[in-house]
Amino acid sequence: MSTPAIKSQPIYAELEWDRTGTHHILFVSAEDAALAQRLLSNPPGGTLTVVHLRPADDSRSAWSQNLPDTALYLETHTLAEALEVLRDAFYVAQMGTRIYLAGAEDAIWQASQLADTFGVSRDEIRHAQLGTKARPVFCVHCRTITRGVHTNIVSCSGCGRSLFVRDHFSRRLGAYMGFQIDAEVPGEVPAAEVVYP
């Protein structure tokens, strides 16, 4: 059975621990003090590994405080590094593990694709959108993904076409679909507006 792509925008439920799991891996790439407090003050049973992607300054993060003593905390500073660390965590993980991905959509869906390669099923993984609403946008014409898009219209980083950013999201690609906006009348591109802060 293959995983069908979500045809529209993902809906994110409130992030909660799945206490039927016996091991837990939390990947987090954005601040949310209230969520951190709520989750970490009532940790699930079994082992907990936290892979944290945080800026390299020494500001204090709610995710590194209040950690249960038994948690394994892994700090990373770039998304590439975070995904590497996460790959290692998945590699040694056992059945019974639940995976929680919290952060910007670009980061969590790249992490989710990584989990897919380990054969993780939907009932083992939860997603939560935190921080920026910027979208990864897949150009349906040249198949390049342009990342960190805040506007409804963006110039594709691959082919330079002006893309209209749709709400259609592909879970497999981890991106929203972008279609050329001036296909009918070339050159007629409305002004882009910031809609994904």
Partner: peptide, 10 residues
């Protein structure tokens, strides 16, 4: 399986 945390899908 359930006691070890295996999800139903597996």
């Amino acid at each position: 399986g359930k006691a070890l945390g295996w999800p139903e899908s597996h």
